[in-house]
Protein backbone atom coordinates (compact mmCIF):
# COMPACT_ATOMS: atom_id res chain seq x y z
CA UNK A 1 0.00 0.00 0.00
CA UNK A 2 1.01 3.56 -0.67
CA UNK A 3 0.88 4.53 3.01
CA UNK A 4 3.43 1.92 4.05
CA UNK A 5 6.17 3.02 1.65
CA UNK A 6 8.29 5.86 3.00
CA UNK A 7 8.56 8.72 0.54
CA UNK A 8 12.24 9.37 -0.17
CA UNK A 9 11.83 13.15 -0.39
CA UNK A 10 10.09 13.44 2.96
CA UNK A 11 12.61 10.99 4.44
CA UNK A 12 15.53 13.19 3.38
CA UNK A 13 13.84 16.36 4.62
CA UNK A 14 13.01 14.65 7.92
CA UNK A 15 16.59 13.43 8.29
CA UNK A 16 17.81 16.98 7.75
CA UNK A 17 15.18 18.67 9.93
CA UNK A 18 15.52 16.26 12.83
CA UNK A 19 19.32 16.43 12.72
CA UNK A 20 19.22 20.22 12.84
CA UNK A 21 16.63 20.25 15.61
CA UNK A 22 18.66 17.68 17.55
CA UNK A 23 21.98 19.50 17.17
CA UNK A 24 20.55 22.89 18.11
CA UNK A 25 18.61 21.59 21.08
CA UNK A 26 21.40 19.27 22.25
CA UNK A 27 23.77 22.23 22.23
CA UNK A 28 21.65 25.12 23.45
CA UNK A 29 18.46 23.63 24.89
CA UNK A 30 18.44 20.41 26.86
CA UNK A 31 21.74 20.63 28.76
CA UNK A 32 20.67 23.93 30.32
CA UNK A 33 17.28 22.57 31.37
CA UNK A 34 18.49 19.15 32.56
CA UNK A 35 21.39 20.73 34.42
CA UNK A 36 18.96 23.00 36.24
CA UNK A 37 16.70 20.03 37.01
CA UNK A 38 19.66 18.09 38.41
CA UNK A 39 20.99 21.09 40.31
CA UNK A 40 17.61 21.89 41.78
CA UNK A 41 17.05 18.28 42.79
CA UNK A 42 20.46 18.26 44.44
CA UNK A 43 19.76 21.60 46.10
CA UNK A 44 16.43 20.32 47.45
CA UNK A 45 18.09 17.13 48.73
CA UNK A 46 20.84 19.18 50.34
CA UNK A 47 18.29 21.55 51.85
CA UNK A 48 16.35 18.64 53.31
CA UNK A 49 19.54 17.15 54.69
CA UNK A 50 20.52 20.51 56.13
CA UNK A 51 17.07 21.01 57.63
CA UNK A 52 17.26 17.57 59.23
CA UNK A 53 20.70 18.36 60.55
CA UNK A 54 19.49 21.69 61.92
CA UNK A 55 16.53 19.98 63.57
CA UNK A 56 18.82 17.43 65.11
CA UNK A 57 21.12 20.18 66.31
CA UNK A 58 18.18 22.07 67.74
CA UNK A 59 16.96 18.96 69.54
CA UNK A 60 20.45 18.42 70.87
CA UNK A 61 20.66 22.03 72.03
CA UNK A 62 17.27 21.72 73.70
CA UNK A 63 18.41 18.55 75.40
CA UNK A 64 21.59 20.25 76.49
CA UNK A 65 19.64 23.22 77.79
CA UNK A 66 17.32 20.95 79.74
CA UNK A 67 20.27 19.05 81.12
CA UNK A 68 21.95 22.30 82.04
CA UNK A 69 18.82 23.58 83.72
CA UNK A 70 18.53 20.36 85.66
CA UNK A 71 22.14 20.54 86.66
CA UNK A 72 21.73 24.14 87.76
CA UNK A 73 18.70 23.27 89.82
CA UNK A 74 20.58 20.41 91.39
CA UNK A 75 23.47 22.67 92.14
CA UNK A 76 21.15 25.27 93.58
CA UNK A 77 19.49 22.78 95.89
CA UNK A 78 22.88 21.42 96.79
CA UNK A 79 24.15 24.89 97.62
CA UNK A 80 21.04 25.54 99.65
CA UNK A 81 21.49 22.27 101.51
CA UNK A 82 25.12 23.11 102.09
CA UNK A 83 24.18 26.55 103.40
CA UNK A 84 21.67 25.00 105.78
CA UNK A 85 24.23 22.51 106.93
CA UNK A 86 26.76 25.26 107.42
CA UNK A 87 24.28 27.36 109.38
CA UNK A 88 23.53 24.40 111.53
CA UNK A 89 27.21 23.77 112.05
CA UNK A 90 27.88 27.43 112.85
CA UNK A 91 25.05 27.52 115.34
CA UNK A 92 26.18 24.27 116.90
CA UNK A 93 29.74 25.43 117.03
CA UNK A 94 28.67 28.73 118.58
CA UNK A 95 26.61 26.86 121.12
CA UNK A 96 29.48 24.53 121.95
CA UNK A 97 31.89 27.39 122.15
CA UNK A 98 29.50 29.32 124.36
CA UNK A 99 29.10 26.33 126.63
CA UNK A 100 32.83 25.77 126.76
CA UNK A 101 33.45 29.46 127.42
CA UNK A 102 30.79 29.52 130.11
CA UNK A 103 32.26 26.47 131.77
CA UNK A 104 35.69 27.97 131.54
CA UNK A 105 34.49 31.18 133.17
CA UNK A 106 32.71 29.16 135.86
CA UNK A 107 35.82 27.09 136.41
CA UNK A 108 37.96 30.16 136.67
CA UNK A 109 35.47 31.71 139.06
CA UNK A 110 35.44 28.52 141.09
CA UNK A 111 39.23 28.44 141.17
CA UNK A 112 39.36 32.04 142.18
CA UNK A 113 36.81 31.43 144.89
CA UNK A 114 38.81 28.40 146.03
CA UNK A 115 42.01 30.45 146.04
CA UNK A 116 40.36 33.26 147.91
CA UNK A 117 38.84 30.80 150.28
CA UNK A 118 42.27 29.27 150.90
CA UNK A 119 43.73 32.74 151.34
CA UNK A 120 41.03 33.55 153.81
CA UNK A 121 41.60 30.31 155.73
CA UNK A 122 45.35 30.96 155.75
CA UNK A 123 44.71 34.47 157.02
CA UNK A 124 42.38 33.18 159.70
CA UNK A 125 44.95 30.57 160.67
CA UNK A 126 47.66 33.14 160.86
CA UNK A 127 45.46 35.42 162.93
CA UNK A 128 44.42 32.48 165.13
CA UNK A 129 48.16 31.62 165.60
CA UNK A 130 49.04 35.19 166.42
CA UNK A 131 46.11 35.39 168.81
CA UNK A 132 46.97 32.11 170.44
CA UNK A 133 50.65 33.19 170.75
CA UNK A 134 49.43 36.43 172.31
CA UNK A 135 47.11 34.52 174.61
CA UNK A 136 49.91 32.08 175.49
CA UNK A 137 52.24 35.03 176.17
CA UNK A 138 49.69 36.56 178.48
CA UNK A 139 49.15 33.19 180.22
CA UNK A 140 52.90 32.55 180.50
CA UNK A 141 53.56 36.04 181.89
CA UNK A 142 50.99 35.53 184.58
CA UNK A 143 52.34 32.03 185.72
CA UNK A 144 56.00 33.05 185.74
CA UNK A 145 55.61 36.07 187.96
CA UNK A 146 57.75 34.52 190.72
CA UNK A 147 61.41 33.42 190.42
CA UNK A 148 60.63 30.10 191.95
CA UNK A 149 58.17 29.32 189.25
CA UNK A 150 60.72 30.47 186.75
CA UNK A 151 63.38 28.13 188.18
CA UNK A 152 60.97 25.19 188.25
CA UNK A 153 60.13 25.83 184.74
CA UNK A 154 63.78 25.98 183.65
CA UNK A 155 64.49 22.79 185.58
CA UNK A 156 61.71 20.98 183.95
CA UNK A 157 62.75 22.13 180.52
CA UNK A 158 66.35 20.98 181.09
CA UNK A 159 65.07 17.61 182.15
CA UNK A 160 63.12 17.37 179.21
CA UNK A 161 66.15 18.17 177.01
CA UNK A 162 68.27 15.57 178.84
CA UNK A 163 65.74 12.80 178.41
CA UNK A 164 65.62 13.61 174.86
Amino acid sequence: MDLLIPESGLFIWMLLAFTVVFIVLAKFGWPIITKMIDDRAKYIDDSIAKANEANEKLAKIQEETAAMLKQTQEKQSQILAEAMEMRKQIVEKAQTEATVAGQKILEEARQQIQAEKEDAIRDIRRQVGELSVKVAEKVLRQSLDSDQAQMAMIGRMLDELETK
Binding site: E7, I12, W13, V20, V21, L25, G29, I32
Partner: peptide, 30 residues
Amino acid sequence: LDLSITKNVAGLIITSILLVWMILFCARWY
Protein backbone atom coordinates in the same frame (compact mmCIF):
# COMPACT_ATOMS: atom_id res chain seq x y z
CA LEU B 1 14.66 12.51 -6.49
CA ASP B 2 11.55 14.42 -5.49
CA LEU B 3 12.65 16.94 -2.87
CA SER B 4 9.53 19.08 -3.26
CA ILE B 5 8.38 21.06 -0.29
CA THR B 6 5.14 19.14 0.08
CA LYS B 7 2.54 19.86 2.72
CA ASN B 8 4.30 17.43 5.07
CA VAL B 9 7.74 18.97 4.44
CA ALA B 10 6.34 22.45 4.96
CA GLY B 11 4.62 21.28 8.14
CA LEU B 12 7.84 19.62 9.26
CA ILE B 13 9.84 22.81 8.75
CA ILE B 14 7.25 24.89 10.58
CA THR B 15 6.91 22.56 13.57
CA SER B 16 10.69 22.10 13.76
CA ILE B 17 11.24 25.86 13.89
CA LEU B 18 8.46 26.23 16.46
CA LEU B 19 9.89 23.41 18.56
CA VAL B 20 13.42 24.81 18.49
CA TRP B 21 12.10 28.28 19.30
CA MET B 22 9.96 26.94 22.14
CA ILE B 23 12.75 25.01 23.81
CA LEU B 24 15.33 27.76 23.34
CA PHE B 25 12.82 30.23 24.76
CA CYS B 26 12.57 28.02 27.84
CA ALA B 27 16.34 27.51 28.02
CA ARG B 28 16.78 31.30 27.99
CA TRP B 29 14.70 31.57 31.15
CA TYR B 30 17.39 29.66 33.06
